[in-house]
Amino acid sequence: MSTPTTSATSALPDATPAKHVSRFRLASWAPVIVLVLLCIIIASINPNFLSFGNFVRISQAAMIPLVLGLGATFIILMGSIDLSVEGVLTLAAVILSMLVLNGANGNDYGLLAVLAVLVIGAAVGFVNGVIHVKLKVPSFMTTLGIWFIGVGAANALLGGMAIRINDPMIRGLAIERFLGFARGVWLALACLGVALVVQNYTRLGRHIYALGGGEELAALSGISVARVRIMAFMLAGVFYAIGGILAAAQLGLGNAQIGNGRLFTTVTAVVVGGTALSGGQGSVLQTLVGVLIVVVLANGMVLMGVPPSVQIGVQGLMIIAAVALSIDRKLMRIVK
């Protein structure tokens, strides 16, 4: 029943795998080359780009997109998509602001609050995964709904206000420095380390690749597709929650607009880094490169006096260009 209709081409003797190889090698290095070129161009126009102060600025701009991008990478590696980034992040930031020492109520739960927020991130991810897997609702629809539920819930909790965060530990993520960089940057790097371990050294990470490479084959090999999918969404939810903590720290408060525009940057970073939307190809390291491309470009535009509002448009064009260049059209007869 499921015989592919492309048997005509697959039997061709010239369909050697060799061509494939060079394609992917180039695809995974192209973002690095783009990043280096970008740096060279901006630095030659404005040498301030290479100052330590600017590196710190770039690192601070990159930390949240990086953490969000790590989570999204795992989802995209499965060939799915997660649009709930802003929903989870906003909910996390708002709940955090209400639980730590703040200007609106008497709570001061400190680390416990952080833990609670991480659990909430995982729980929302779990809901995403269960709806997606058990009800067979495509991920973009599930997460679109959860996106708005998350933001709506944050709004309902706040009732339109913003809550000031007074907790020194949380504020310290943005203010306190270690080796010249904000603590939050180090936290983001730690997240990158964790993501690398999960990606490369756990069964979950490897099974995510397997699902992206061929779900039916993965299932035939005895991998529980449902379990892997749900756990991947939970993992992503935790990363978004950490993104929410960092965002709250950076802003110094929790409000319902804290997530605005973050989904867009996240998706841009992941696909510009070269992770394929079709799944199976890419890595969290490539997402790091993608994040740096997006952030460096934005930084460069600021240095050159381009208004920030243009950046969104540029990111949009980058998404189209990156996806168009990385998609393996031979594998996709029907695109929806």
């Binding site: 939307l277 969104i312 448009g313 949009g316 189209i320 996806v323 168009a324 998609i327 996709m332 695109v335």
Partner: peptide, 15 residues
Amino acid sequence: LKIPSFIATLAMGGV
């Protein structure tokens, strides 16, 4: 360009 519609229009929305 065979870009999935949700991503193509997400990007276009940004533009």
